[in-house]
């Protein structure tokens, strides 16, 4: 084939252009560490990367939700533990009160203790998380759940569950209704009266029995909280490993294998140098150079 001068130079120029562009592309890859910078680089990979990024964002949000639910549940558990403490004391008082031989001033002392415990109970029931939301109001988080009407404690909350999404299509209920706390309070009213009136029969039979029932009920609630917290932990663990896996997948798509990228960069540098050398060789050879001047 006949090679014209501009073809000869054009080819070398093109080679140099190609290696320059390849070189700069590979330099960019090594310096940014990114393989897919724009959809054009790998359309299928990009779509996949976007889906992964979405899942990662979602998982991170589930993590924040779970922390919120955990905090709420832990506060609730502390409240139930406190109620458990109250119940233990009530049980002792009931046992002591179910005694015919008790002196009136001793009875009065027990009576006062029950009143104190009732106050404590109301205080526990009206607790707030982060001095913000009431623990036991249900969804009526800004309404003080317990108020006294006369000596009767009435529950103002709606007892409705607050669902927190902690995984796809999965929520955990982070609160408990406070209705039973009011029942307990009002039961203590009966007990107080029975202590005052020395109704030993009721105290030793019904009241003791009721208190035991309340004890096992609140114990059950605490067990339930444990179950929910474990569930949250399980999801947190699953999410963590899923997060790691997805981050790895994302890196596989978006990021360069540095060792490979660097060796490719070296290759590009070499071929760039080679093309420059070819140019300098070619441009020095020309028949005109060999003709005598003049």
């Amino acid at each position: 084939m006949r090679i014209s001068t501009s073809l000869q130079f054009g080819r070398i120029q093109k080679t140099i252009e190609q290696s320059t562009s390849e070189l700069s592309q590979r330099q960019r890859r090594v310096s940014t560490g990114r393989r897919v910078d724009q959809p054009l680089d790998d359309p299928v990979g990009t779509v996949h990367a976007l889906a992964i990024r979405q899942q990662l964002q979602q998982i991170e949000q589930y993590g924040r939700n779970a922390r919120e639910a955990k905090l709420f549940l832990q506060s609730t558990e502390q409240a139930f533990a406190d109620i458990g403490e109250v119940l233990n004391q009530v049980r002792q008082i009931v046992t002591q009160g179910a005694n015919d031989t008790l002196q009136p001033d001793a009875r009065e002392a027990l009576f006062q203790q029950v009143r104190k415990l009732q106050e404590r109970l109301m205080q526990i029931g009206n607790q707030r998380v982060d001095s913000d939301r009431y623990l036991f109001g249900g969804q009526l988080v800004f309404t003080q759940p317990f108020t006294l009407v006369g000596t009767t404690l009435t529950y103002q909350g709606d007892g409705q569950p607050m669902h927190v999404p902690i995984a796809e299509h999965h929520t955990v209920v982070m609160n408990f209704s406070g209705a039973r706390i009011a029942d307990l309070y009002n039961k203590l009213n009966d007990i107080a009266t029975n202590i005052q009136t020395a109704n030993v029969a009721d105290l030793s039979l019904n009241d003791l029995n009721d208190i035991q029932q309340f004890q096992s009920e609140f114990q059950r609630y605490r067990g339930e909280i444990g179950v929910r917290l474990r569930e949250i932990e399980t999801y947190a663990y699953l999410h963590q490993s899923r997060h790691d896996q997805l981050t790895g997948n994302l890196a596989d798509i978006e990021e360069v294998d540095l060792a490979e990228a660097i060796s490719q960069l070296r290759q590009s540098e070499l071929s760039y140098q080679a093309s420059l050398q070819v140019f300098s060789r070619v441009q020095s050879v020309n028949l005109f150079d060999f003709l005598r001047g003049g």
Binding site: A49, L50, R53, Q58, R64, N65, P165, E254
Partner: peptide
């Protein structure tokens, strides 16, 4: 895309914010 400034990230941040609001 893909990145933090594209619609994908913004859209998911938007839904996340509502999910956070669902918790609070």
């Amino acid at each position: 895309e893909p990145g933090e400034f594209g619609i994908n990230a913004r859209l998911n941040a938007f839904f996340n914010a509502f999910e956070e609001l669902a918790t609070r």
